[in-house]
């Protein structure tokens, strides 16, 4: 039986990261659509993805959160992964101090960039219940 391939949306403004993530996700057997910024991502959202992987810092430091919010509003059941290189090491952090902030930010998973591709595969499968 031929099953339809799941569609993964990847948004990142680092072209190399975008290319590499797309390459890995396609090798897991998914279809991929990509966008390089929030605006482009929203315009491809007419097509409903099965999962989204978003970079956190794009045009602004919290662009990924904003986009996650918009995706969830439109498709509440689409799992969202936020990938970021922001760690304590870089001296930056999320600046999410208030409960209010935490309430509107909805992501299903937070991933550190540069994780092994087999771990990424496992996490995606978990979220898609495969």
């Amino acid at each position: 039986m031929l099953k339809e391939k799941k569609l993964v949306l990847i948004v990142d403004d680092d072209l190399d990261y975008l290319f590499q993530t797309k390459h890995h996700v396609e090798s897991f057997g998914f279809d991929v659509i990509t966008a390089e910024n929030v605006k482009d991502a929203i315009s491809v959202l007419t097509q409903k993805p099965d999962l989204a992987i978003l970079d956190l810092m794009m045009e602004t430091q919290d662009a990924g959160f904003v986009l996650a919010y918009k995706i969830k509003k439109r498709y509440p059941d689409v799992p969202v992964i936020i990938a970021t290189a922001v760690t304590a090491e870089t001296g930056l952090n999320f600046h999410l101090e208030t409960e209010e902030d935490k309430n509107w930010i909805k992501a299903d998973l937070y991933l550190e960039k540069g994780i092994r591709s087999d771990q990424l595969h496992r996490e995606i499968n978990k979220l898609l219940k495969l």
């Binding site: 304590a88 952090n93 999320f94 935490k102 992501a107 299903d108 998973l109 937070y110």
Partner: peptide, 14 residues
């Protein structure tokens, strides 16, 4: 992998 909530908390707690 932690949930975003825990990740944010953990980052804020250093």
């Amino acid at each position: 992998y932690a949930s975003l909530d825990i990740a944010v908390k953990a980052t804020n707690f250093g």
